[in-house]
Amino acid sequence: MIVKVQMFGAFRVLGDQIEVKVREGGSVSDLRDSMLQYAQNADLSDLLAVSKFASQSSVLGEDAICSSGEVLAILPPVSGG
């Protein structure tokens, strides 16, 4: 299945949004694994490891199940204020 991921912060170098192939019924942990190649290509592997994924309303745990066509967001460490 395809999961859309909105890019924020340093991940913006990959574009505003990317589409990532994840196994059916896959979790956020699977999504993270699937994103590794994108991250490696942009030298963002270390940042991926410390980033979280979120829906439009909450930060997700690693076991949260992804849905086909869902739009999630990747949240690297934050620096607001």
């Binding site: 912060g9 410390v50 930060v59 997700l60 745990g61 460490p77 934050v78 620096s79």
Partner: peptide, 12 residues
């Protein structure tokens, strides 16, 4: 450069 920040807490 993007400023290095604070890693978010998840709902693990």
């Amino acid at each position: 450069d993007w400023v290095k920040g604070h890693a978010l807490c998840g709902h693990d």
